[in-house]
Amino acid sequence: MHRRPLFAHVSAHVLALATALLCAGAAQAQDKVTFATNWKAQAAHGGFYQAVADGTYKKFGLDVTIQQGGPQVNNRPLLPAGRIDFLMTGNLLHSFDNVKNKVPTVVVAAMFQKDPQALMAHPGQGYEKFENLKNAPLALIAKDGQFSWWQWLKVTHGFKDEALKPYNYNLAPFLANPKAIQQGYSVAEPIYIENQGKFKPVVHLLADHGFSTYSTLIEARTDTVKNKPELVQRFVDASAIGWVNYLYGNRKAASALMIKDNPEMSEAEMEASVALMKGQGIVDSGEAASNGVGAMSAARIKDFYEQMVKAGLYKAGEVDLSQVATLQFVNKKVGQDIKAKLGAK
């Protein structure tokens, strides 16, 4: 009988053991990361969920848990407290405040080139031109908006406080008054208005009229940037690729994860939101079109701060802009090759 040499059995065993150890080592090499958002799961968070769903984070050695926000959840203090590793924030105003108040956080990427903050109006009421919105007799604006970008609208575009009424996130007053204008998140409220009011609203992005902040920022602690820059780079790169795949690839698995976290959402609503994100150039426009998703520039951060100084939100020199964001992790064209392969439609 032909017998296999003993050393062959030993070699095979050693090889199998070595392979198992390598796999175990790879599994152990996954860095656990908690990333918190500022609201319930929705299409505007889709790129991050995509990177979880399709394994992009894992390919970058990251075991990422997404911790969603919501009306009764404030994830912002958890970042400086060390309870989470990265935080998704709304726009640069939060980051300016952090630097002003000496909160040890810094922006490491901007996933949205345009802030989706918008003003909406009924069609056929003379509001198709942005400059006519300031003449509306009723402007439904939430309190936080009244004390931030509304001040910019007054100084820059001549809006007046006389029209102000608080927006309480109920569409009924707007739907009932064809002469009213209302604030909205441009990738969400237009969908709700069309569903409830049976018409497509006129939508004016503030970003298209000079409100130059980035949005959907990723913030990290300054000590993380200093001590674990390689971890930050992997998270930023994987998130950028997640956004490319979410916008241009198969996003069904990401949608399923978001619906699991937030059952109020539907796949149809998220698809409609993705269409708006694409059409409005929210993610993939401006600097991102050439430098990759997440791109930022010091010049644009400075421009937005100067606008906010003119609006009276800050004093000149009050915020050290060099502490607001770091560009070391962005502008590297990450994901551009994937976008080309997917066709970027």
Rank of each mutant, 00 (worst) to 15 (best):
M111W: 11
F159T: 01
G343C: 11
K32R: 15
G55P: 02
E267C: 11
V99E: 03
V202M: 02
H204Y: 07
L342S: 04
P77W: 08
A311F: 13
I66P: 03
L22V: 14
Q328V: 09
G294H: 02
G312M: 09
I181L: 04
A253M: 08
A295C: 04
K260F: 06
G82F: 11
S266N: 08
K40I: 12
F86A: 05
N227D: 14
K252H: 11
V108C: 00
V232D: 01
T105D: 11
K59W: 05
G158I: 07
E287M: 14
P80L: 05
A51N: 03
I301L: 10
V155M: 11
L93Y: 13
A24E: 09
P201F: 08
L21P: 09
L62W: 02
E162C: 09
Q233I: 02
A275D: 13
A26G: 08
I301A: 01
V10D: 11
T213C: 13
L342E: 00
A44V: 12
Q117V: 13
Q50Y: 08
A51F: 03
Y314V: 00
R83T: 08
P201L: 05
K59R: 15
Q146D: 12
Y214T: 06
L247D: 01
E271H: 13
L87M: 07
V232M: 05
A43Q: 09
Y214A: 09
W152C: 01
K278I: 08
A41L: 09
Q68I: 12
G286L: 13
F35A: 03
A289K: 15
E271C: 07
W243D: 00
L206I: 12
A220N: 11
P77C: 06
P173Q: 02
N98P: 08
N170D: 15
F329W: 05
L140S: 05
T89I: 13
E189G: 01
V330D: 01
L206P: 06
L205Y: 01
T216K: 12
G90Q: 07
Q50D: 10
L78F: 10
L313T: 12
L133W: 07
K341N: 05
N98K: 12
F329N: 02
I84S: 12
P173F: 01
G281A: 03
D284A: 05
Q328E: 15
R234P: 02
Q42D: 12
L175G: 03
Y314N: 09
K315C: 02
E271D: 14
L171R: 00
G69S: 13
K339A: 11
N168R: 12
V64L: 12
A8V: 14
A207Y: 00
E306K: 11
A298G: 11
H94Y: 11
H45W: 10
T89G: 06
Q28I: 10
S148A: 15
A8I: 15
T65C: 05
Y192T: 14
A29V: 05
T326I: 07
D144Y: 13
A24K: 09
F159Y: 03
I241H: 00
R4S: 06
I141M: 00
R4N: 03
K154N: 06
K40W: 13
G82T: 06
A256W: 10
K160R: 15
V73P: 06
Q307R: 14
K129H: 07
V187C: 10
T326L: 13
L79V: 04
F7L: 14
L15D: 14
